[in-house]
Nucleic acid binder design. Structure first.
Length: 569
RNA sequence: UGGGGCGUCGUCAAGCGGAAAGACACAGGGUUUUGGACCCUGCAUUCGGAGGUUCGAAUCCUCCCGCCCCAGCCA
């Protein structure tokens, strides 16, 4: 294997690394680098989150710093305990460790309320009795300034009283809010007296019934980072114009001031990446769940057979910048192939079986061949025994009655090599009388070619995989394709909505595939290369009684190009 | 004449005044008991456009054009 192709390669320079390097040189934060990954537990993590995770944990690791895992659980009506567990599993699976630094925004609710009181005392926050509709109306528009609320100039004493009573549960949901008193004429809408607390009589998954007011993200997030002494608060682009607000809160409170840095979120071709949309796919049962192998979720990719290493490699390769972009799915596929090529043992499996009878092979005879798991490096994992007998299955696509141009697999009178076994030659084609469909092929084998070499030195153009009919294990194989038929479903042509671009062929279930007997020992999560076909992973639902494999990704196939060229002529 | 960002190969992306890295994709060729892997080769005289500064600009200045985000008591 070539060294340069190995997954560990030099880090790609990016602007965030530059900023940190600069900060370190200037002695900022006493040389500390402390980041965090702050998901809201309202859905499963996807590959876009993986980018953020790799960035935050990666930067901390690179600069000898720390990275926290913090659940941003400020909205109890959208968040669930189940998501918290799934998120932790995904981060761990990717190979990152938050050690003892697992935090929750809800742990800081008391502190946040104290800070709010400080702002009220300083005349920087007020309780507003207007309805949400009125508040929206008073906020103004993008081009016109807003108007000040009727309640903006209440006394500190009244604000204190009202806020305490909000907190005590005296008011109904939505009847009042606490707002920061900033500038209703600001060009930045975030500065037009943003809401800090809403009244929500909802049970929180961690604090239970303790609170009936909950902080909003804009008020809470900067505080969470400050409380944890985060030095570099890395987030996505859409929060860029919230930064002045976070800065304002931190300055008013005069507390530790993390530096926020924004980067462009990941978009991938042929899929969607927003949690809202992924949730919709799950709810409408377009997919079988968050971990459906077609989903760009971490759990979906895991079930599909992607490895943590391949995802981390991908995240390193795509780089980090500020411009909106859509990364080609082919790059992600390249990353798994690269990893699995080096790490997946080779086995044989026939997806679309075609029976072959070797007429001159003794009826009851069975031979066993040693087939290395890593043909390019035989000692690596040793080999397994592959039984061979008179009747075998080969791939339907490996036989053509009228071979097309440059086709060099089996065809009438043609000879090919059965991998690890013998040369066989096709002598007869058996067809169904009614349909004309090819049902069986008759061949002869050359006993002199055992192992795959002919003593007379004659060459054969094709080598095909096979499996002994009487020894084969039946298996179900799931083939996957892009979830969407267009590369950018969010911005596809026409007025149709994104769901209309779903790929109807994203899942194909093959029920009677035949795989070699060594796979009886395959366990869920195991990766294999089915030679000449692709990389496959044992599904969690697979069992000894019913083997189920997911195709992670096919092998690159230069034959399809030739085929297309042939058809073009 | 609201505010905030961004525009370098088909797709990502380095570059930070000394003269276009790399990866994926694509196209050729070699090699091969996986039409896989591996190995070569090719692939932006040009950096959204126009001016300007400079011996010298993708990098600095000016203007223009295009794209993205913001009017949740979501995050």
């Amino acid at each position: 294997m070539n060294e340069s192709k190995k997954i560990t390669h030099d880090k790609v320079p990016n602007f965030i690394r530059s900023i940190i390097l600069e900060d370190l040189e200037m002695g900022k934060n006493e040389g500390r680098v402390h980041t965090r990954f702050p998901p809201e537990p309202n859905g499963y993590l996807h590959i876009g989150h993986a980018k953020a995770i790799c960035l935050n944990f990666g930067l901390a690791e690179e600069f000898g710093g720390l990275c926290n895992l913090r659940f941003d659980d400020t909205n109890p009506i959208k968040e669930e305990e189940a998501y918290i567990r799934a998120i932790q599993e995904d981060v761990k699976w990717l190979g990152f460790d938050w050690e003892d630094r697992l935090y929750y925004a809800s742990d800081y609710f008391d502190q946040m309320a104290d800070y709010a009181v400080q702002l009220i005392r300083a005349g920087k926050a007020y309780v507003d009795d207007m309805s949400s509709d009125e508040i929206r109306e008073y906020r103004g528009t993008l081009k016109e300034p807003g108007k000040e609320s009727l309640y903006r100039n209440r006394s500190v004493k009244e604000n204190m009283d009202l806020f305490e009573r909000m907190r005590a549960g005296e008011f109904r949901d939505g009847s009042r809010v606490l707002r920061a008193k900033i500038d209703m004429a600001s060009g930045n809408l975030n500065m037009r007296d943003p809401v800090m607390y809403r009244i929500l009589h909802a049970k929180h998954h961690r604090t239970g019934e303790k609170w009936c007011i909950y902080p909003l993200y804009d008020w809470a997030h900067g505080l969470e980072d400050s409380i944890e002494s985060i030095t570099h608060s890395i987030c996505t682009l859409e929060f860029e114009d919230h930064r002045p607000l976070y800065d304002w809160f931190l300055d008013q409170l005069n507390i530790f001031h993390p530096q926020q840095i924004e980067f462009a979120r990941l978009n991938l071709s042929f899929t969607v990446m927003s949690k809202r949309r992924l949730l919709e796919l799950v709810r409408k049962k377009v997919v079988r769940g968050w971990d459906d192998p077609r989903m760009p979720t971490i759990s979906g990719l895991r079930r599909r057979g992607y490895t943590p290493q391949s995802i981390r490699d991908f995240c390193e390769r795509i780089g980090v910048a500020k411009r909106d972009s859509v990364v080609d799915m082919a790059l992600l596929e390249h990353c798994v192939r690269n990893d699995l090529n080096q790490n997946a043992p080779r086995v044989m499996g026939v997806l679309h079986p075609l029976r072959v009878v070797i007429k001159n092979y003794p009826e009851e005879q069975v031979e066993e061949f040693d087939a290395p798991y890593f043909p390019d490096d035989p000692p690596r994992m040793g080999s397994r025994k592959v039984p061979f007998s008179r009747e075998i299955y080969i791939e339907q696509a490996d036989f053509q009655e009228n071979p097309s141009k440059k086709y060099f697999r089996l065809a009438p009178s043609r000879e090919v090599r059965l991998r690890w076994a013998y040369y066989v030659k096709c002598i007869h084609v058996v067809k169904d009388d009614k349909t004309g469909e090819i049902v069986e092929i008759h061949c002869t084998y050359d006993p002199e070619t055992k192992g795959g070499w002919a003593p007379d030195g004659r060459k054969v153009k094709g080598t095909i995989h096979w499996v002994s009919a009487s020894h084969a294990l039946e298996a179900e194989v799931h083939l996957y394709d892009h979830l969407f038929a267009v590369s950018d479903p969010d911005n596809a042509e026409g007025e149709t909505d994104w769901m209309s671009h779903l790929n109807p062929h994203s899942l194909e279930i093959l029920k009677s595939c035949m795989v070699e007997p060594s796979l009886a020992r395959a366990e869920p999560g195991n990766h294999y290369q089915f030679e000449r076909q692709g990389y496959f992973c044992v599904d969690p639902d697979s069992s000894a009684e019913k083997l189920v494999f997911n195709r992670t990704v096919s092998l690159r196939d230069s034959w399809v190009k030739i085929e297309k060229a042939n058809q073009g002529k």
